[in-house]
Amino acid sequence: MTATGASLGSTAIEGKLRSPARPYGKKRSIMPGFGITFGFTIFYLCLIVLVPLSAVFVRSAGLGPAHFVDVGFSARAMASYRLSFGAAAAAAAVNSVFGLLIAWVLVRYEFPGRRLVSAMVDLPFALPTAVAGIALTAIYAPNGWLGQYLEPLGMKVAYTPLGVVVALVFVGLPFVVRSVEPVLADLGHDVEEAAASLGAGRVDTFTRVILPAIGPALLTGFALAFARGVGEYGSVIFIAGNMPFVSEVSPLLIVTQLEQYDYAGATAIASVMLVASFALLLVINLIQIWSRKRMAA
């Protein structure tokens, strides 16, 4: 459903934007390799992603619609979606602010150890999520490195929904930094200088000139961080506390269903999550393509 509608939408956008301003349509013939690269892309995509994912949907379809709704939208499942999607959104928001700041600092300023810091940003991609979860729990538990100072202030991080957010901030940070960094680097100073010469202050220049230019990239970073956060399991189970209705994330609920040999129930919850994440990613990618074309035009 979603997919067809979206693909139509995207076609319309592409069609409208293939305007005379970018006349590469007619030169297309000289560029070789479309058949093989496109064919291989689709083949590999089907093999690795689409066929396996369809197995999830087919299995959940075996439940029948009524039972699917019972399992996929039970009170407990809804509570877990609220936590998974809510914490992922909060973490992605935090990452958007600080990720942008970090990208800015890395691109614009020169300071000792800049390259090392830049390399470190990718750490969450590389560190196994379970290790990250254990390390974060060790830090934020009430007797942990930081937890022991936060506890007296009444701030509980580990074993609360806040702990989930902390884990997801860790997991999602590089997505934002790496999305924004190249665009920020490419952004010439001339626009800013023009704005400044017209009397705009630094803050004005940022909100009116820079932010709109990097907006799409920031949005991509947000979407990727968000999508990654929604599905995160390994780091979250250690720090979440896992109380049903309070700190139980959706992937854990899937595991719980599996423990009862209820594959159909597990795939029902998985399907709901997949459709939601996919719809979100699609919308954001379309916005991005659209704004890219608009800027180019």
């Binding site: 995160e232 399991y233 899937i254 998985a270 997949l274």
Partner: peptide
């Protein structure tokens, strides 16, 4: 899409 698919799934 694989970014957003839970590892469990």
């Amino acid at each position: 899409l694989p970014f957003s698919v839970s590892p469990v799934v």
